[in-house]
Simulated assay, not measured.
Amino acid sequence: MKEAKTGTEFPDTYCHLSRQDCPTLMGVGARAKKLAGIKTIEVYAMGFYMDENAAKQTCSKEFSCLPPVSLERNQALAERVKTAHDIEKSVRIVVTSGLVNQERFSKGLRESLEPRLRAEGDLQALNDFEALFRGAKFHKGLEMVFTNTQAGALALKIGGNEAGFVESPVFTKAFFDLYLGSEPVSKDGKASIARGIANTVSNAGS
């Protein structure tokens, strides 16, 4: 699947761990940001991957009776997927601008995550998260992958290398809220992901 605004292509599946049945690409989007209050740039393209079988098992009883067109706009389904630790999901980010460096990227994430974490009272996790990026060499085309674990932690890979974990279910929930929440950082991305999740769950009985 190709993200239209940046032309970034994403493979159909992505495995955080080596296995045969890998999570499937649900949708793609792009994150735009106004730089210095003047120029708007596409900071990164993103693809959202989800374990289809786990999602069907978790969500089928509650949501599979509804048609996809209804499920696309069903925030309760998005919340269920967002908070379920037993559904493996990954956000795969590809930096699409040479103007993005580690400092700007971390600052942008902090601006988006801090209000969500302040409401939950877990700002320390944000500091732990930012520490994972220290020393990373940012460049156009750099890939980062964020994956939840069954324990509720968030694992990070930068350029294909393990960068570490944030051991906070509250933080993991806040991170996925950036893409599945009611105020996503990419509205087009949320719509694309919602279509993919809706089609997956509505086909649970097929």
Rank of each mutant, 00 (worst) to 15 (best):
R104Y: 10
R92M: 11
A194N: 14
L71Q: 06
A30L: 06
T147P: 09
D128G: 08
L178I: 15
D21S: 09
Q75V: 09
G108A: 10
S60H: 11
C59K: 00
L132V: 01
Y179N: 04
S64Q: 12
L17V: 10
G37Y: 10
C22A: 03
K82Q: 15
E143A: 10
I193T: 14
T149Y: 07
F146P: 11
G108L: 05
R19C: 12
N101Y: 06
I41P: 08
L117T: 07
I41Y: 06
K2W: 00
L178H: 04
K39M: 13
D177S: 15
I87Y: 05
A191E: 14
S186H: 09
F63C: 05
P169D: 07
K39F: 14
E88L: 06
A30E: 06
G29H: 13
P23E: 13
P68W: 08
L109W: 03
T40L: 08
N161M: 11
P11R: 12
V28M: 08
P67L: 06
M144Q: 10
K5C: 02
V91Q: 00
P23M: 11
F171V: 06
A78D: 05
F146C: 05
I41T: 11
A198N: 02
V43H: 02
A191M: 07
T149S: 13
T6R: 03
E88H: 03
A131W: 03
